[in-house]
Amino acid sequence: MTIPVASGGYPGRAAAMASCPAGETRTGGGASVIAGNSHAERYLLHSTQPISGEAWWAFASNTDTANPGTLKVFAICARVVSTPVLTTPIST
């Protein structure tokens, strides 16, 4: 997801989401911001968190007026299988 350049005194902003495929459960996730051809401190990752629906969400901003950045979001997913219930053996 492109983080647009700052304009009119306001930073460029972007939000993005990554979702798990059907049948898989989100076990984690995260995000990263990649600077454009500028100083890295102009590109900020403000929030990265799980959201409902087995997805991960992130929000970032860019104060550079000439170079857009990139926001990458990922969800870590796993296929969860049923496990048998363990029982204690009966002693005689």
Rank of each mutant, 00 (worst) to 15 (best):
E41Q: 11
S7Y: 10
Q49D: 11
S82Q: 13
L44T: 13
G69T: 09
G29I: 04
D64S: 09
G23M: 06
V73I: 02
H39A: 14
S38H: 08
P50M: 06
G36F: 00
A40N: 07
Y43T: 07
T63R: 03
A66V: 11
T63K: 01
C20D: 10
G30K: 04
G23S: 06
S47R: 15
A16T: 11
V33T: 07
K72F: 00
N62Y: 00
N67F: 10
I76E: 13
I76T: 15
I3T: 10
A15V: 13
N62Q: 01
S38M: 01
T87W: 03
E24R: 14
S19G: 12
V85G: 04
D64R: 03
G28P: 10
M17C: 03
H39S: 13
T87R: 12
E54R: 07
L86N: 09
R79C: 07
T70M: 08
S61Q: 02
V85H: 06
S32F: 01
L86M: 09
S32M: 07
S32A: 10
V81R: 12
P84Y: 05
P84T: 12
N67C: 06
A22W: 03
V73C: 06
F59P: 00
M1D: 13
L45I: 11
E24N: 08
M1Q: 11
A78N: 13
A55T: 04
R79K: 15
F59Y: 14
I3D: 09
A15P: 00
C20I: 05
I51Y: 03
L44E: 12
A66S: 14
T83C: 05
S38W: 04
D64N: 14
A60L: 01
A40E: 09
G23Y: 04
